[in-house]
Computed example of a mutant assay.
Amino acid sequence: MNISIPKLQHTDSGNFFLMAGPCAIEGEEMALQIAEELVRITNRLRIPLIFKGSYRKANRSRLDSFTGIGDEKALKILAKVSQTFGIPTVTDIHESHEAAIAAAYVDVLQIPAFLCRQTDLLVAAAQTGKVVNIKKGQFLSGESMRFAVDKVKESGNANVILTDRGNTFGYSDMVVDFRNIPAMQENQVPVVMDVTHSLQQPNQASGVTGGKPALIETIAKAAIAVGADGLFIETHPTPATAKSDGANMLQLSNLESLLEKLVRIREAVR
């Protein structure tokens, strides 16, 4: 990677890096439990790890959907994960004023896909000096993401990551176009495949997002084979009880075997 992330380990391994964790921070015990297992697995496989957790879920299908346990409480949990395990953390922000608030607790600020064209948000994130991970809009091509990269870099911050999470045509499903990975790498920034969100089935009639978790391994293998620099995988000990995006998360107990396969693919294509 040609970016600098504090506390990121195993960058000399030649492996892809991993952004992983629960969709949302549901509580301290759960976050520490997941982080401990992620650290164990990635240390063994020498995979650089960034722990992911949303401190607040602003983009929900229904008004009564879970949004969080409280901003400061969740951000402090992310900080505790980082301090306890010595790993960097990432969380998403949704409005410009959130950038400085979240930056006080995490190492990477994530721009949600629906907001990747919001200039004020990108500039605010850039001005914190933190690494900015921009998710590609479901409605955009990989090539068009150069403008989002330019907004951050021209605001004085060269530490940018781009993440693909599939494309949608408004029919409650996502399609992954793997041409987007090399297209976004043309911007000379690391490119990540968001495996679990690319398998979402949003805007279901029930108002609860669905998903196709059985295809997680397929998308992850293809992304590494194409040359993705990193993977984004949301994981939970019991996805069925997760308060957000349980339908497309990977069960934590299945992560280690998947990563073992992906490391072998990475070695083969390197």
Score class of each variant (00 low, 15 high):
Asn254Ser: 07
Phe114Cys: 09
Leu38Ala: 08
Ala126Phe: 06
Asn187Pro: 00
Leu75Glu: 15
Ile3Met: 12
Asn2His: 05
Pro202Ser: 13
Ile41Gly: 06
His10Trp: 12
Asp12Gln: 10
Asp229Ser: 09
Thr84Phe: 01
Asn254Phe: 00
Val195Lys: 02
Thr128Ser: 10
Thr67Lys: 15
His10Met: 05
Val152Asp: 00
Lys57Ser: 10
Ala35Phe: 01
Lys52Pro: 09
Glu37Asn: 13
Ala99Lys: 03
Ile181Cys: 07
Ile219Met: 04
Thr11Lys: 14
Ile69Phe: 13
Ala148Gly: 11
Thr218Glu: 07
Ser198Val: 08
Phe169Ile: 10
Val108Asn: 00
Pro88Ile: 02
His236Trp: 05
Ile5Gln: 09
Met184Ser: 04
Val175Gly: 11
Pro112Tyr: 05
Gly53Phe: 01
Met1Asp: 00
Arg60Ala: 15
Phe147Asn: 13
Leu255His: 03
Pro22Val: 05
Ser198Tyr: 10
Arg44Met: 09
Arg266Cys: 07
Gly156Trp: 14
Leu231His: 01
Gly129Pro: 11
Lys221Trp: 03
Ala104Tyr: 02
Leu63His: 08
Lys73Phe: 11
Ser13Asp: 13
Gly207Glu: 12
Ala214Pro: 00
Thr89Pro: 11
Ile25Ser: 12
Ala31Trp: 12
Leu258Gln: 08
His236Ser: 02
His236Ala: 01
Met30Tyr: 00
Val208Arg: 12
Ala20Arg: 03
Lys212Thr: 12
Glu267Trp: 09
Glu143Asn: 06
His10Lys: 10
Val149Glu: 04
Ile93Asp: 03
Leu45Cys: 09
Glu186Tyr: 02
Asn167Thr: 15
Asp120Val: 01
Gly70Phe: 01
Glu28Asn: 10
Ser82Glu: 05
Leu49Phe: 08
Cys116Gln: 07
Leu45Gly: 09
Asp229Met: 02
Ile265Thr: 04
Val226Ala: 01
Met1Ser: 13
Arg165Cys: 15
Arg56His: 14
Lys243Ser: 11
Ala20Phe: 00
Leu8Met: 15
Val195Arg: 01
Ala99Trp: 04
